[in-house]
Write a protein that binds this DNA or RNA. Structure first.
Lengths: 237, 237
DNA sequence: ACTAATATTTAGTCTTATCTAAAATGAGGG
DNA sequence: CCCTCATTTTAGATAAGACTAAATATTAGT
């Protein structure tokens, strides 16, 4: 039997890996709000169960088995998030915590019935892709809004789902998946970013902007206002 | 924070109490499939948390607090069972195990949304009454089918929800809540019971009959036929 | 290359919930 | 009334997963 703790650690490592960072002891500890010593402890267990490769002092890496388990739980999480919004009327800021608990206990049967009820969906309410039944998932290359330069445009693809207050704020601003935005200004020294979305303009901080990731980033044809020189998109990654 | 173990113990005590038995250490241990010593241990904790009154060597009794917590979990369980059958297409033999895990993790928010989606229902698929939002529940006086005498009739009100194979069998025989039945024969020495339900006749064992509880029990006007000694029949599994 | 700062691991403790084996209690039959 | 036997409790061990404090390894700055 795979404990909930094991599932949580594997999921955390997966998320750190796919966000391009190194799954260090500290990074895992911070994400799970546990002490680093607890992480070391668990990494040894995970390694003995062949779920991660643990190189002491160098962090961990998921094995195929570990990734499979992580993806199974992530599939549960994202299907649940979508189900709760679509079929039980939850708002998008409420579903993360609920899914966080449910994801560990639903059966394959229930996973499949939810999947069917939703028409085998591909993304959850925050734009996160849902692994399919074979646990294959396409993690697209996305650009954080914080990396866009004035004059660039893009389409919001994913937003972080973990902070309800942030999600409510983003919703107020209509900064939701599939919304098109243009960066009109960006203050120096990691200053706030001005954007246009719909017919509105907003200015948001860099911290928030890192939690918004975009697809289809390119230079706008006509830059509405901003004579700052726009270099041919470097940051697209 | 109330642990899942605590919830399980309180629920077990509640079920034993409402089935008219004494919540002895052994009875609780058997229901939860744990060693009696584990129960003694937990009863001390529950007592210190004012959830039960524990008289050593005499078993336990729920306090108002303990009953409240038990009913909260039971409400979750029964709402979930009904939701899974009504909205996700589960059959009635599949829902107990699923609900058993989900009941511990759903929020009040989710409880309420499920309750609404179902139209604030009063009973679950097995006929068990669902405590309302104030955790008030009417536990009716019901007669086990095993206690009926030949010539008596009644309406199935509740069946035990814990054994999927039994539920599938009962469903095959259409021995489901709201079905009217007549006892046509009962073999001596706790022998099998012959019944009529719909247009069919079946003979079932006493053990099974104790898991079927009836309301509106009374003598039938005319007992259709009953001189033929009914043998313990080809019990289809 | 050496030292200071940071990251990680080790060692030892705690809590929860389980177990087994042994001791104690209580209830029923003679 | 007492003795036997089933029930219950006590005592002590174990496992998972967390913690703190101390030791050790790595990395960065000069």
């Amino acid at each position: 039997m795979i404990s909930q703790a094991v599932e949580d650690y594997l999921k955390a490592i997966y998320h750190i890996q796919t966000s391009g960072r190194r799954p260090s002891t500290n990074a895992i500890a911070e994400r799970l709000s546990v002490a680093p010593a607890s992480v070391t402890n668990m990494l040894k267990q995970l390694a003995s169960m062949k779920m991660v490769v643990h190189t002491p002092y160098q962090g961990a890496e998921l094995t195929e088995l570990g990734a499979k388990i992580a993806l199974e739980v992530i599939r549960h999480h994202r299907l649940l998030e979508l189900y709760l919004t679509e079929h039980l009327g939850f708002s998008w800021d409420q579903v993360h915590d609920e899914a966080e608990r449910l994801e560990h206990v639903i059966s394959e049967e229930m996973e499949n019935r939810i999947d069917e009820a939703l028409g085998r969906p591909l993304v959850d309410p925050h734009g996160d892709p849902i692994p399919n039944r074979d646990l294959v998932v396409e993690e697209e290359l996305l650009t954080p809004l914080s990396e866009l330069l004035p004059g660039q445009r893009g389409v919001i693809a994913r937003v972080s789902d973990r902070d309800p207050a942030m999600l409510r704020y983003l919703n107020d601003l209509r900064l939701v998946p599939s919304a098109s935005i243009i960066v009109t200004d960006k203050a120096p020294f990691n200053g706030p970013i001005s954007i246009e979305v719909g017919n509105e303009r907003h200015t948001i901080g860099v911290e928030l902007a890192t939690h918004i990731r975009l697809s289809a980033v390119k230079d706008a044809e006509k830059v509405p206002s901003s004579e700052n020189p726009v270099r041919p998109n470097d940051a697209v990654g």
